[in-house]
Write a protein that binds this DNA or RNA. Structure first.
Lengths: 211, 211
DNA sequence: CGCATAGTTGACTACGCTCAACCCTGGTGG
DNA sequence: CCACCAGGGTTGAGCGTAGTCAACTATGCG
């Protein structure tokens, strides 16, 4: 999800890679809405976003949509696939994007020879866990008003009190575990109470509620 | 949470460790309800459960209780702390327990020299991510009945259709994001419908609902 | 320009939460 | 050995809030 994982990966940047790995990486361009891989496809690679935005999502048995991660430039995704046979989520490009493709076996070999690479990948995984834990905590807050406020405050720690969403609020609503309607209503209510102000997809947190 | 993470760690077992690490590990005994560390304590070590059961939990700003993990014998916890300055959760012993303590710096050094250890730790982290994703998916199911059934079915994949909970159903309810009352009612309802049968903390899934 | 999708608001409903009362069990101490 | 207590488990009644369905407007993209 947005704003809860912000860990640019450095050691996977092509220019920092040992040559024998660099020569094995590939690039791939994706149009808006294009799918890079589906859940349960054989896992063949891990990725870093070069430009654009990749959404990792899935569906519950009941057909409900769940977003696991929004990967932005310099961020890795599908690192899990290194140790899993199948992908755990669908990867879809939300805007025209370009990703770097690191074939699985190449990286697995590299991990043995380059321990510092292993360390940074572990850090990525840790950040990922951290983000998932925050989401779990967020869901524990039952009242929509409190949940939304807490979410906004969390994001504000990265972005400052003016928050600009670059994707539909509808999506943000689902990330929060609310229907879009409930989310809009909650925002309207918060604005009426003076906790926030907003126009379009920009939301400003007011001091009273930053606490 | 229970049943969603089952990955015994082998390479951290003392007998499999290189001697220079083995000599650095410690053991600690914990009584029921005793706390090993608190959230935001400085992170000094990672752990493996030798015997007993350790609960990793936290509280939301509103004071709601969240369980992140139930660590059982042979399972690691607080692996994240390797790369974080502070612990992310409270660790409490639910029954008399004994844990193995691996000081952080010792392991960090070891990761450089022993790539296969790094690999297994990464696998642990991946399993952890997997478990958290499943919980997030679970929470996406709104109807209590469906949520409980899905949870039971998931556990049944490990344990078979007869499920024995070794901790209060009250706790299980909270893991599921339900109040204990709602959980009891849902179980009663499922039993009336014939989807399950139960006595005490043992629940049997019936074929019709295994699907 | 037109269509698809996002955003917005209203009315109604349903489901789970809260509070409350009660039973049952196991553990502790007098 | 019983009394007591704490905590888990169970069920009922009522309420509130977020979900659902629906109608409509705004926006942006081809």
């Amino acid at each position: 999800m947005d704003g809860l994982l912000r860990e640019p990966i450095k050691s996977l940047r092509p220019e920092n890679l040992p040559p024998e790995i660099r020569s094995e990486i590939r690039y791939q361009n994706l149009a808006t809405g294009e799918t890079l891989f589906h859940r349960d496809d054989p896992a063949t690679a891990i990725y870093v976003v070069e430009s654009g935005r990749i959404r990792l999502d899935s569906y519950t048995p009941e057909g409900r949509f769940v977003t696991f991660q929004i990967a932005r430039p310099m961020e890795s995704f599908a690192v899990m696939s290194l140790f899993e046979r199948l992908y755990e989520a669908n990867a879809t490009s939300e805007v025209p994007s370009r990703v770097i493709v690191y074939p699985k076996q190449v990286l697995l070999d590299a991990l043995i020879k380059h321990p510092e690479l292993a360390q940074e990948l572990m850090q990525q995984l840790v950040k990922h866990i951290y983000a998932l834990k925050m989401r779990l905590e967020l869901r524990e807050i039952r009242a929509a008003r409190d949940r939304v406020l807490y979410y906004l405050k969390t994001i504000a720690q990265f972005s400052g009190i003016v928050i600009n969403f670059d994707r539909p609020l509808k999506m943000v609503a689902l990330d929060l575990g609310l229907t879009p309607e409930a989310f809009y209503r909650t925002l309207a209510q918060l604005e009426r109470k003076g906790s926030i102000s907003r126009s379009h997809r920009q939301i400003t947190l007011h001091e009273t509620s930053v606490a």
